[in-house]
Structure formats: structure tokens, C-alpha cells
Amino acid sequence: MMELKLIENILWIGMRSATPLLLASLGEIYAERSGILNLGVEGMMAMGALSSFVASLLTGNPWIGVLAGLLVGAALSLIHGIISIHLKGNQVVSGLALTMFGLGLSSVIGRIYIGNQLPVDARFLPVPFKPLSSIPLIGKVFFEQDPLFYMGIVLAVVLWFILNRTKIGIVIRSTGENPAAVDAMGISVPKVRYGATLLGGALAGLGGAYLSVSYNPAWIENITAGRGWIALALVIFALWDPIRALLGAYLFGIVEASGYTLQAIGYSQWLLNGLPYLLTIVILTVGATESMRRRMGAPAALGIPYEREER
């Protein structure tokens, strides 16, 4: 029984701590699918975390906090959008600049709130759905979580559906593959890309909100501690697919969480930390064989500004 409970808890902890990675990577998948590479996830997450923390603290309502995180994340991504889309600037550099700017701004504003904690009713807590939550192994994992956890799962499914089964999805994917064709259809490439970029920013902000309003309901500087970069790795690990991002995020989280049990029997936690990245490279290599290429979804026009041919 002890082992079962242990495994249940590893799953529970792993999947909980994977939620911010999932949310941020879902957004980035849309941005990248439309052709916009935004390396500023870490900065947007940090600002999302701060703004949702502050909004929850001031209003006492975590949902207002979530809204603030979404809006601020989107606002920051707008800077990246303008530079990448309208000004056709370098997306790698702009993303790095966005990370610096976001982390810096969150640290400066956050100084006022250092050490503040959210009161219980201003944060999300995992709530057990009884009696489902007492099902062995999976009960706690799926029926004792906070609202944002479920939102992550729902978003992954919905975003997968939109991307793969709707016209909007086709337009977004085509914009990332062959923007000229989209343009020829009379659809505005910049509009699609702005939309995807803003969604990416909003969801990165939501990922940050999860950290500060649910997971660690206190403001501490550098609360993201590099998780924005892991989310970027996850996008590739998932081969730009929302459902695979869901599974990948949980895999990343569970590998991390099981590390604490494995280290007790002598495994190097440092090497375990590197494992997800190694897996990503392996997946990239194995998954990149010619037959897989078509399913892989690596957007052909990723990171390339769209220029209308001069006529």
C-alpha cells in the first residue's frame, strides 16, 4: 500500500508542477505554428506571475489575478509582435530582450511585495472531489486539483481541436508553413500572427499566474527560476502539438518529481535533471525521419518575417 501511495503522490506532485510548463508551452505552440518564435517566455511568465499575484492580493479574488496575468502576458508579447511582424526584426534577439525586460520589470515592481503571501481565499487550492478523489492511484491525481490544473487539460484539448480540426487552425498552420499562400487567399498574415503571438503571451502569463496564485502563493523574486526555458523545450518535445504537450509536460514533471525518490537510492539528480533535454534531442532525431517529417509539424517559416513579394 505504501508504494501505491508513493507512486500516486509522485504523479500528483509531478503533474501539478507541470501545469505552468503546459500552459506556457500551449501558447508558444500557437505562436510558433503561425511562424513567430518567441524566446521571451521566461520574461512573460515572470510578469504574469507578478501581476496576477498583485491583482489577487489587492482584490482578494484569484480569478481577477488570472485575468491580470493573461492581460499582462499578452501586453508584453505585443512588443515582440510589433518587432517581429510589423518591423520584421530579428525574433531571436527580440525574444532574448523580452526575457531581460520582463524579468527586470517583475523584479523592480515586485520589490514592494517581497514576502507578501496571498490569504487563503485569494488563491487556488487543490479541492478533492469526493468520493472520486479516493480512487487508488488516479483519484488524487485527477480529482484533487485546483481550477487551473483542469484548465490546462481543457485548453490542451480545445487548442488541439482548433489547430487540427477547424478552419482557423488551418489558417494558423498555413501561416507558419507558407505565408505567401495565405496572403494569396486574401487573409492577412500579420493579423494571424498577432493573434497567435498574443495568445502565446497570454498563456505564458497564465503559466506564471499558476506559479504565484496556486503553486507558491507568495511573491518571491525570480519565481519562474528558468521554467520559461523548459516550456520552450517542451514545445519541440511535443512536436508543436497541444496534446503531445500535455503528455510531455506531465512526463517532464513526473521525471522531476520521481527524482526525489530516486536520489535516495543513489541516482544523480543532476543527470536526471538533464534527462528531459536529452529526450528532446532524441525525439527530434528519431522523430525527424522522412516519414515522420510530415506529421512533425515543424513550421517551415518559423522565425522568418513575412515579406510580400513586390509586384
Binding site: 518587432i83 530582450a97 531581460m100 523584479s107 515586485g110 520589490r111
Partner: peptide
């Protein structure tokens, strides 16, 4: 944070 923001802002404008 001010230093990071400062660097970020400079890059944004140079990019623009």
C-alpha cells in the same frame, strides 16, 4: 532589475 530592463529597452529600440 533596472539594469535588465535598461538592456531590454535598448535592444527593443535597436531592433526597431
Amino acid at each position: 532589475g533596472v539594469v535588465d530592463m535598461f538592456n531590454g529597452i535598448i535592444l527593443f529600440f535597436v531592433l526597431a
